[in-house]
Amino acid sequence: MTAIDIGLPRRLVEFELDGEPVRVPENATILDACTAAGTKIPTLCQGDTLQPANACRVCMVEVEGSRTLVPSCSRKVEPGMVVRTDTERTKTSRKVVLELLASATDLSTTPEVKGWLEETGAEPERFGPPAPPSDDRDHRQPGEHEVPDGMTAATVRQPVKVDNDLYVRDYGKCILCYKCVDACGDQWQNSFAITVAGRGFDARISTEFANPLPESACVYCGNCVEVCPTGALSFKAEHDRRENGTWDEERQTETTTICTFCGVGCNLTLHVQDNEIVKVTSPHDSSVTHGNLCIKGRFGWQHVQNR
């Protein structure tokens, strides 16, 4: 017999969502409630295996009585709350936040964002043509910046970091959602190899002193790549295939199996293209891994295709 932990019974809380009464279990977030009610709220920094970071501000909704909009990903539903997801204020906020992100960041590999930009009528180009890439972002001093002339829009465009055989870090695509730092740190891996460094627009994901990854505390578990919502972090195998134009998700199959390296029993999802493993992930709802793996499960598959 299999024992399934269904947890303690949770009280239901009733509140109003876009004019309709909705009942959700106690402690549910507004976003949980929206998802359950079929109301789609876009979000980038929310992670199904992580604590809310509250950083991207894409999922903001209006709560009656609140001076500002509130992040639906973290705000818990309270009895009697009146929530609106579709007011002019929320629409403007979503549009401008997406415009700001798209004007500063390369979102070409961010799933779904193209549709959101179209839906909201975002025009990131109204802030001006993007400024050229810069190679000094790792060493900028907080509290100072070059005086802009206003004729270009500052961006985080910068050279791609390739300093090891397993990961590629393309921080021109980074929206600073904190997920990789949280996955590397005390929420999952406890390696603490990366951090948010710097301040303001110059804030960036970095190792200590921006040292190359092989000199850092990184253990190459790949859990940061697993949670990255924009493709700023990618596996080298995927990055190389994207570069030479042979990455094609339409031709890929996904097969979930069990890792054979040790006795823990992690679920592996093998992404296979043209009879070759091109990427390994783990299901986020796996009770063993919660989407996390170690270097062996994540990268130790080359021998399979030594033909």
Partner: peptide, 22 residues
Amino acid sequence: DESCGQCVPCRIGTVRQEEALH
């Protein structure tokens, strides 16, 4: 200069405002 950089409206918004004001 003083934005901590945590959330998008402030981190990028303060930059776009300075640019537009110029």
